[in-house]
């Protein structure tokens, strides 16, 4: 698998942290900060672990902190997936 879509991320978000009441993950969440979507630091760490489990992509500690929005996360994971194939 070489691409990781926003829908793939949505799926992992649902599994890793559930969905806060009042949050619609199917809306355009690309540039909404994770914290506003109800995903705190613990939820992001869990998300990173699930990405590793499913896609084999390890996200170093500092990079998890920098992944503040779904867009940044999707782009980051895609870069790693492409890198992994080379």
């Amino acid at each position: 698998m070489s691409t990781f879509s926003l829908d793939d991320l949505r799926e992992i978000m649902r599994q890793s942290a559930g969905v806060e009441a009042g949050v619609d993950l199917d809306a355009d969440i690309t540039d909404i900060e994770f914290i506003e979507l109800g995903y705190d630091s613990l939820a992001l760490l869990e998300l990173a672990i699930q990405v590793k489990r499913k896609y084999g992509v390890s996200i170093p500690d500092d990079d998890v902190v920098d992944m503040t929005t779904p867009r940044i996360a999707v782009e980051y994971i895609n870069r790693q997936l492409v890198g992994a194939e080379v």
């Binding site: 599994q15 890793s16 942290a17 559930g18 969905v19 806060e20 009441a21 109800g38 613990l42 939820a43 869990e46």
Partner: peptide, 8 residues
């Protein structure tokens, strides 16, 4: 249970 609490 609130959705966010289920996986944790």
């Amino acid at each position: 249970v609130p959705g966010r609490l289920i996986p944790q």
